[in-house]
Protein backbone atom coordinates (compact mmCIF):
# COMPACT_ATOMS: atom_id res chain seq x y z
CA UNK A 1 0.00 0.00 0.00
CA UNK A 2 1.16 3.51 -0.63
CA UNK A 3 -0.38 6.83 0.36
CA UNK A 4 -0.98 7.74 -3.26
CA UNK A 5 -3.09 10.81 -3.80
CA UNK A 6 -6.73 10.19 -4.54
CA UNK A 7 -8.20 13.07 -6.48
CA UNK A 8 -11.73 13.99 -5.59
CA UNK A 9 -12.97 16.26 -8.35
CA UNK A 10 -16.73 15.84 -8.57
CA UNK A 11 -17.74 14.30 -11.89
CA UNK A 12 -20.64 12.37 -13.28
CA UNK A 13 -18.87 9.01 -13.02
CA UNK A 14 -20.44 5.85 -11.65
CA UNK A 15 -20.95 5.91 -7.90
CA UNK A 16 -17.80 5.19 -5.96
CA UNK A 17 -15.56 5.81 -8.96
CA UNK A 18 -13.02 8.52 -8.25
CA UNK A 19 -10.95 10.26 -10.84
CA UNK A 20 -7.49 8.80 -11.10
CA UNK A 21 -8.79 5.24 -11.52
CA UNK A 22 -9.75 4.43 -7.97
CA UNK A 23 -12.93 3.31 -6.24
CA UNK A 24 -14.00 4.01 -2.67
CA UNK A 25 -15.89 1.34 -0.78
CA UNK A 26 -17.36 1.59 2.68
CA UNK A 27 -17.71 -1.88 4.16
CA UNK A 28 -19.34 -2.81 7.45
CA UNK A 29 -17.94 -6.00 8.91
CA UNK A 30 -18.17 -7.95 12.12
CA UNK A 31 -15.40 -6.77 14.44
CA UNK A 32 -13.62 -10.14 14.65
CA UNK A 33 -10.15 -11.56 14.17
CA UNK A 34 -9.25 -12.35 10.57
CA UNK A 35 -12.03 -10.38 8.90
CA UNK A 36 -9.64 -7.80 7.48
CA UNK A 37 -7.56 -10.60 5.92
CA UNK A 38 -10.69 -12.03 4.27
CA UNK A 39 -11.58 -8.65 2.79
CA UNK A 40 -8.04 -7.81 1.71
CA UNK A 41 -7.60 -11.30 0.26
CA UNK A 42 -10.40 -10.79 -2.25
CA UNK A 43 -8.54 -7.81 -3.71
CA UNK A 44 -5.10 -9.43 -3.50
CA UNK A 45 -6.30 -12.54 -5.37
CA UNK A 46 -7.08 -10.40 -8.38
CA UNK A 47 -3.96 -8.32 -8.20
CA UNK A 48 -5.93 -5.22 -7.19
CA UNK A 49 -3.89 -2.84 -5.05
CA UNK A 50 -5.50 -1.29 -2.00
CA UNK A 51 -4.43 2.34 -2.15
CA UNK A 52 -5.60 3.20 1.33
CA UNK A 53 -7.54 1.58 4.10
CA UNK A 54 -9.04 2.99 7.28
CA UNK A 55 -10.55 0.67 9.90
CA UNK A 56 -12.23 1.44 13.19
CA UNK A 57 -15.01 -0.06 15.29
CA UNK A 58 -18.43 1.56 15.04
CA UNK A 59 -20.23 2.93 18.08
CA UNK A 60 -21.41 -0.43 19.42
CA UNK A 61 -18.01 -2.06 18.96
CA UNK A 62 -19.66 -5.10 17.44
CA UNK A 63 -18.99 -3.95 13.89
CA UNK A 64 -16.11 -2.22 12.16
CA UNK A 65 -16.33 0.27 9.36
CA UNK A 66 -13.75 -0.03 6.62
CA UNK A 67 -13.09 2.71 4.09
CA UNK A 68 -11.17 1.14 1.23
CA UNK A 69 -9.72 2.96 -1.75
CA UNK A 70 -8.86 0.49 -4.49
CA UNK A 71 -6.76 1.22 -7.56
CA UNK A 72 -9.31 -0.11 -9.99
CA UNK A 73 -11.93 1.90 -11.81
CA UNK A 74 -13.73 -0.35 -14.22
CA UNK A 75 -16.13 -3.28 -14.37
CA UNK A 76 -13.95 -5.81 -12.50
CA UNK A 77 -14.90 -4.04 -9.27
CA UNK A 78 -18.52 -5.13 -9.63
CA UNK A 79 -17.57 -8.78 -9.29
CA UNK A 80 -15.34 -8.01 -6.30
CA UNK A 81 -18.15 -6.15 -4.56
CA UNK A 82 -20.53 -9.08 -5.12
CA UNK A 83 -17.98 -11.52 -3.75
CA UNK A 84 -17.21 -9.22 -0.83
CA UNK A 85 -20.91 -9.32 -0.05
CA UNK A 86 -20.73 -13.13 0.09
CA UNK A 87 -18.22 -13.10 2.95
CA UNK A 88 -20.05 -14.31 6.03
CA UNK A 89 -18.57 -11.52 8.18
CA UNK A 90 -19.45 -8.69 5.77
CA UNK A 91 -22.69 -6.99 6.75
CA UNK A 92 -23.03 -4.39 4.00
CA UNK A 93 -21.12 -2.54 1.32
CA UNK A 94 -21.55 0.90 -0.17
CA UNK A 95 -19.72 2.32 -3.15
CA UNK A 96 -19.14 5.94 -2.19
CA UNK A 97 -19.52 8.62 -4.83
CA UNK A 98 -16.99 11.39 -4.12
CA UNK A 99 -19.47 14.09 -5.16
CA UNK A 100 -22.07 12.81 -2.71
CA UNK A 101 -19.81 12.33 0.28
CA UNK A 102 -17.65 14.30 2.67
CA UNK A 103 -14.11 12.97 2.69
CA UNK A 104 -11.35 13.62 5.19
CA UNK A 105 -7.82 12.46 5.70
CA UNK A 106 -5.26 13.14 8.41
CA UNK A 107 -1.57 13.59 7.61
CA UNK A 108 1.25 13.85 10.12
CA UNK A 109 4.58 14.94 8.68
CA UNK A 110 8.07 15.62 10.04
CA UNK A 111 10.10 18.10 7.97
CA UNK A 112 13.64 19.34 7.91
CA UNK A 113 13.27 22.88 9.20
CA UNK A 114 16.45 24.57 10.30
CA UNK A 115 15.81 28.00 11.76
CA UNK A 116 16.38 29.76 8.40
CA UNK A 117 13.32 28.18 6.73
CA UNK A 118 11.13 27.58 9.74
CA UNK A 119 9.27 30.80 9.15
CA UNK A 120 8.33 29.82 5.60
CA UNK A 121 6.98 26.51 6.81
CA UNK A 122 4.96 28.20 9.53
CA UNK A 123 3.47 30.49 6.83
CA UNK A 124 2.21 27.39 5.01
CA UNK A 125 0.91 25.94 8.25
CA UNK A 126 -1.08 29.16 8.79
CA UNK A 127 -2.47 29.25 5.24
CA UNK A 128 -3.64 25.63 5.44
CA UNK A 129 -4.80 25.93 9.03
CA UNK A 130 -2.55 23.00 9.87
CA UNK A 131 -1.24 22.31 13.37
CA UNK A 132 2.29 22.29 14.74
CA UNK A 133 2.64 19.15 16.88
CA UNK A 134 6.31 19.20 17.88
CA UNK A 135 9.39 21.33 17.23
CA UNK A 136 13.06 20.32 17.26
CA UNK A 137 16.17 22.37 16.51
CA UNK A 138 16.36 21.23 12.86
CA UNK A 139 12.98 19.54 12.40
CA UNK A 140 9.30 20.31 12.81
CA UNK A 141 6.28 18.02 13.02
CA UNK A 142 2.93 19.27 11.70
CA UNK A 143 -0.47 17.74 11.00
CA UNK A 144 -3.32 18.56 8.67
CA UNK A 145 -6.85 17.23 8.46
CA UNK A 146 -8.70 17.96 5.25
CA UNK A 147 -10.04 16.63 2.02
CA UNK A 148 -7.58 14.26 0.36
CA UNK A 149 -6.83 16.80 -2.40
CA UNK A 150 -6.09 19.53 0.14
CA UNK A 151 -3.76 17.15 1.96
CA UNK A 152 -2.11 16.40 -1.40
CA UNK A 153 -1.56 20.12 -2.00
CA UNK A 154 -0.09 20.67 1.46
CA UNK A 155 2.24 17.70 1.10
CA UNK A 156 3.41 18.93 -2.33
CA UNK A 157 4.20 22.37 -0.94
CA UNK A 158 6.13 20.92 2.01
CA UNK A 159 8.13 18.44 -0.04
CA UNK A 160 10.87 20.91 -1.19
CA UNK A 161 11.83 21.50 2.45
CA UNK A 162 12.64 17.82 2.89
CA UNK A 163 10.14 15.33 4.30
CA UNK A 164 11.76 13.14 6.96
CA UNK A 165 8.70 11.07 7.77
CA UNK A 166 5.07 11.14 6.73
CA UNK A 167 2.01 9.12 7.66
CA UNK A 168 -1.36 9.63 6.06
CA UNK A 169 -4.39 7.82 7.50
CA UNK A 170 -6.04 7.11 4.17
CA UNK A 171 -9.40 8.52 3.33
CA UNK A 172 -12.43 8.23 5.56
CA UNK A 173 -15.82 9.36 4.32
CA UNK A 174 -19.49 9.73 5.16
CA UNK A 175 -22.37 10.31 2.78
CA UNK A 176 -23.52 13.94 2.40
CA UNK A 177 -26.73 14.82 4.18
CA UNK A 178 -30.09 15.53 2.60
CA UNK A 179 -30.49 19.25 1.96
CA UNK A 180 -34.20 19.48 1.22
CA UNK A 181 -36.78 19.67 3.98
CA UNK A 182 -39.35 16.89 4.16
CA UNK A 183 -42.59 17.82 2.39
CA UNK A 184 -44.53 17.99 5.64
CA UNK A 185 -42.40 21.00 6.62
CA UNK A 186 -42.61 22.72 3.24
CA UNK A 187 -44.09 26.23 3.40
Amino acid sequence: MSPAPTGSAPTDQAPGRNSGGTTTLVVHVENKAGVLARVAGLFARRGFNIESLAVAPTASGRFSRLTIVVGVDAAPMEQVVKQLDKLVNVVDIQELNPSASVERELMMVTLRADPSVRGQILDLVRVFQATVLNVGYEEIMVSLTGSPSRVDDFEALLRPYGIVDVQRTGKVALAKLVKTAPESLAP
Partner: peptide
Protein backbone atom coordinates in the same frame (compact mmCIF):
# COMPACT_ATOMS: atom_id res chain seq x y z
CA UNK B 1 -4.83 -23.73 8.35
CA UNK B 2 -7.42 -20.95 8.33
CA UNK B 3 -5.09 -18.75 6.28
CA UNK B 4 -4.36 -21.51 3.76
CA UNK B 5 -8.01 -22.50 3.37
CA UNK B 6 -9.55 -19.02 3.39
CA UNK B 7 -9.97 -18.89 -0.37
CA UNK B 8 -11.19 -22.49 -0.78
CA UNK B 9 -13.91 -22.54 1.88
CA UNK B 10 -17.26 -20.82 2.10
CA UNK B 11 -16.19 -19.87 5.61
CA UNK B 12 -13.73 -21.05 8.21
CA UNK B 13 -13.24 -20.75 11.95
CA UNK B 14 -10.34 -20.81 14.36
Amino acid sequence: TTGITMSVTKHNYL
